[in-house]
Amino acid sequence: MSDDVVLRIEGLRKTYETGRVRALDGIDLVLRRGEFVSIVGPSGSGKSTLLHVLGALDRPDEGSVWLGGQDLVTAERLDRVRARSIGFVFQLHNLVPTLTAVENVELPLYALDVSRAERRRRAEELLVAVGLSERLHHRPSQMSGGQRQRVAIARALVNQPELVLADEPTGDLDQETGRHVLELLERLREERGLTLVLVTHDMAVAERADRTIRLIDGRIASS
């Protein structure tokens, strides 16, 4: 795998209900470092399944998935892969309500045995980067929807991942706030050279990406 390839997928197949539902049916995909790719498609087209496989949340039935130099099909500990190499931004912010913004951002670093001081330093640095320097010690309930999603973005980046996966990150926000969140993701991608995969229903959002992959019935219809 060449140096600038972050993810390579070949012949990916995934079925559910003991083979009756083909969620993914022969996907081949290469993502390069710093690339911004959007995935679109109707409901049931396999977007979420693909995202789960890309994010080391699930294993395929067939095919190969290489992230960095690691084979995700045979990797023993997918949690370690997620902790080291992947950042997630979900539609709902999914922050822990009892923790402050900075404590939420620190959470992935517990899995990497990062020291307390380093955890705090990295979390604060990212919250400043997403424009929340005044909200470090606020709880999710004390923040707006847009601010919460920015905390979630900071949390996704705190482990310095090779791949950031965003699943409808603006789906729960109003248009204006959604636009700001997208702009933030794009800025951070450029600044940090992130590889960003964004799943969306919204074509206007998808078209901001370098490349748009359209899925239909578990296959790539266009790329």
């Binding site: 994010g55 949690d79 370690r80 902790a83 999914n94 992935p108 899995a111 990497l112 949390r155």
Partner: peptide, 16 residues
Amino acid sequence: TREIGILQAIGWSRWM
């Protein structure tokens, strides 16, 4: 349930 799932998604092991 959702919170525990999210923690696992961001890299927490089952042991954690």
